[in-house]
Design a binder for these strands. Structure first.
Lengths: 158, 158
DNA sequence: GCTGACGTACTCGGATAACGTTTGTCCGAGTCCGATAGG
DNA sequence: CCTATCGGACTCGGACAAACGTTATCCGAGTACGTCAGC
């Protein structure tokens, strides 16, 4: 039960993109800003791009831009894009194996274990869905005012 | 974001232990019953034993027995024992790195990302905690009556 | 002075290796049951 | 016939390799900007 480390980077990048002015931000700058491996961060951003959360702009002054408004991007979207949308628990249908294997026609509905796991997974996803990138950006600017603006300036002048 | 595969086995074993009569059930029998690797299942059972969920009985007619009543063992207990109790998300304090690093004294409370992740993790755990092994056993016997008794007989006669 | 084409430099994108964790396996230490010999 | 002792076999427990997934990296394809020559 471990979440991909890139999720954290991706979320921070999304917050930065939400706070930055609309000019595309290249992946290299985001990597320097967060002091992480540029190539690996690029991989995460590619995943976000593939999922349609951010849009890539190629060419001389290219980079990444949020595809939708920050209010329309939930944390769950980012997590699913980077870490994969498959549930953490995968039922291997143990009950249909072994000497006392249940017949498939008796297994039309999920077993209790599977159901409990799926319920927990749903609760997890629902919780993540209730938070948006805009919420995170707002919270950051409330606790440490000026931070987001400072980042925007830094992105512009470098 | 993937859960250890042994979690499913451990849960099934706990249900069987809850339904079986009180005689200790050896790990080898549980492995045959579920048609899984005996040695690897033993590893999971050791984890459950270390967590105090089941109690091991050594010797000729030894095996494993539930340490508490099935109503007092939650699915979360089993998951935590096998998969580890550390949260899925680990905050690496990205905000304290890079050219615009925040000072540690400004990071006394968790950042928004960390908080959102922890909230989701709590929701997940809370959901798992509401289901007990007894619930799973009852559900199984309700949908497929006689299954648990059949397993008990099989354990006794082999 | 304006317009068009060209070269350059910068961007993303996917294919490719190294590390770590999980999965799977093995053998040794400890313990209880049953048989056996003695009283 | 009862009891104490011994032997054996079965149990769990921790230490040891292999495989998969994640982490990290590189180089190639594509595109927009700036420059320069021509009109």
């Amino acid at each position: 039960m471990k979440l991909s480390g890139g999720v954290e980077w991706a979320l921070h990048c999304c917050v930065v993109l939400a706070g930055a002015t609309m000019e595309p931000v290249p992946a290299a700058k985001l990597a320097v800003l967060h002091d992480v491996s540029p190539t690996y961060l690029a991989k995460q951003l590619q995943a976000l791009s593939r999922a349609g959360l951010i849009r890539s702009v190629q060419g001389h002054a290219g980079g990444y831009v949020l595809a939708r408004a920050a209010e329309k991007v939930s944390v769950l979207d980012v997590v699913s894009a980077v870490d994969g949308a498959t549930p953490a628990f995968t039922c291997t249908e143990v009950r249909q194996r072994g000497p006392l294997a249940a017949r498939p026609e008796d297994c039309l509905e999920k077993c209790g274990i599977h159901a409990a796991m799926d319920a927990a997974d749903t609760a997890w996803r629902r919780s993540l869905q209730q938070v948006t990138i805009a919420d995170l950006a707002g919270q950051l600017d409330e606790r440490n005012p000026g931070t987001l603006a400072k980042v925007g300036d830094w992105l512009a002048e470098t």
